[in-house]
Amino acid sequence: MISKSTISEQKLVSNELERKTRKKSGLKRKHYMWCYLFLAPQIILYLTFTLWPIIGSYYFAFFNWNGIGWPTEIVGWENFVEVLKDSYFWNAFKNSFVYTFFLVIIVVPTSLIVALILNSPKLYGAAFFRTLFFLPVVLTMSIVGIIMQNMFAFEGGFMNEILLSMNIIDDPINWLGGPNLAMTSVVIVGVWKGFGIKVIYWLAGLQTLPKDIYEAAKIDGANLIQQFVYITVPLLIPFLIVITFFQTVWAFNVFDLVKTFTNGGPLFGTDMVPLYIYRYAFEMDGGLPRMGFASAAGIVYGMATMVITLILGALVRKYGKNRY
């Protein structure tokens, strides 16, 4: 008897428990449902517009395909071999790296200097100056390229006129007339276009610096330069890496500027990989497009730049963690 009642009591309790958990998991299931529903558009677009293009670009790289219909003529690794053997690819590759290298070593330190000036309490109208430095960033790159063609013209161009009038040069420079000078011009415009955003990055960094350390250093008799070298620089290293990272990725993918400014010329002197690929995919002078080859070139370039991006990315994560 007793046992019976206990059993039924136990049953009751367990039923109660079961009901409770069932109710709770039902609630949970309901909120999972909402979570997935909210995520659904992103997941669908991720699969179709992010993942599929990446997979597709690998798939197409193994075909000889002119972009019409679905590819059928499989050629294995031939496209990759051709890319690796092509001296024009390596020329564009070299140019991309030269461009990126100079952009980084010029922009990163100089934008810090400007940020330091803008951050100084002794400067009047910092917001005004900041806005002016920033303006080029919001302009359409393709239009900048077109305007710059005029700024860098040999006769009557802004660059020559201003340098001549300041007596920095005696004779006008033919900025776009030769490969090396044209590359210099592209670098100058690249610096100009992206400079403002790096200034803002640095300013954000400078604002995180704790003020009391400087007070203490002042009391210890450290001068401005010492303060900069021993306090500011070490504290800014994480920012240095992040900014270098952004600048590098940005420069590796330059397309609009070279397309509209020099179109890779003269004589492939400013041809960069994104432009090289574009030519094969969409601008085959007379011949048919070579989409498979373009994809293969994209993958080779992607792999090469990934190595650098990953190294910088690892550094970002390492220093990012140390900061907090």
Partner: peptide, 10 residues
């Protein structure tokens, strides 16, 4: 971080 090929084509 994934290196993409020429994704504009697909």
């Amino acid at each position: 971080f994934i290196p993409a090929g020429y994704t504009i084509i697909p």
